[in-house]
């Protein structure tokens, strides 16, 4: 069996851990975002993009998070489906609305950058289309969970759907290599190092860390909410039987 972190398999330990970890990650996110915004607005205009380059500091981290959160959703769904971890299912359910929000942000801010730079709010480019499909997977996951009253059936059906959606992640990542795309190829995570100038790279990485910390904090809070909800439903069921 895959050794899960202790807090993942024990709700009591998770609640004790998340009680201090959630505000810690939240505070870290605020500090990192302030530093990233400061550096982002102190950076010079890009010689081609002008001031729209600043949209990249909020767009690119949102796009990275859309994929990272889906990877978390897929992993939690796998653990829930195979090892029946109740907390893993709560983690999957808690990740979905956050992932949908990050994906929507990536699409909206990308559109606001695309209009002045490409001359269009939207094009059926491989990267944009695959990210739209990713957003639809998040929406479908939440709709499916909401549509089924039986918690166990909803968890199982949701986990299967989430795992099917994992197939889309490499398509999003490599769409710019596999098809002709308006999007550029990877410019930060490359074997030969980033090709982005330091004045743009540092604020971009700080904002990415801020988004990551914010997700960590909000995910923990949402999982705590899920644990409370399940406890409330168990108590209500017990009261109804008594």
């Amino acid at each position: 069996m895959i050794p899960a972190p202790a807090f993942l398999s024990n709700p009591e330990r998770f609640m004790a851990f998340s009680r201090w970890a959630a505000p810690l990650f939240g505070g870290l996110a605020v500090v990192l975002a302030l530093a990233g915004l400061w550096l982002g607005f102190a950076a010079p205009e890009d010689y081609q993009q002008g001031d729209t380059v600043r949209i990249m500091f909020i767009h690119v981290p949102a796009a990275w998070m859309s994929m990272f959160v889906y990877a978390c959703l897929g992993t939690a769904s796998f653990l829930s489906l195979v090892f029946r971890h109740a907390l893993a299912d709560a983690a999957a359910q808690a990740a979905a609305p956050l992932g949908a929000a990050f994906t929507a942000l990536a699409l909206i801010t990308g559109s606001l950058w695309g209009r002045p730079m490409w001359g269009a709010w939207w094009v059926w480019d491989a990267r944009m289309t695959s990210v739209l499909v990713l957003f639809l997977f998040y929406v479908a996951y939440m709709a499916l969970r909401a549509a089924l009253d039986d918690e166990a059936k909803a968890a199982r059906a949701g986990a299967i759907l989430a795992l099917v959606g994992v197939v889309n992640l490499p398509i999003v990542k490599f769409s710019v290599d596999w098809w002709n795309s308006l999007h550029q190829g990877a410019s930060v995570f490359r074997a030969d190092g980033p090709t982005v100038a330091d004045v743009f790279l540092y604020p971009l990485l700080l904002m990415a860390l801020a988004y990551m910390s914010a997700f960590g904090s909000l995910w923990l809070v949402r999982i705590r909410g899920e644990v409370w909800r399940r406890r409330a439903e168990a108590l209500a069921l017990r009261a109804a039987r008594a």
Partner: peptide
Amino acid sequence: PYGAFVWPAFAIT
């Protein structure tokens, strides 16, 4: 001249 795109992006975020 891109304020109409930059500021809404930050506001929506």
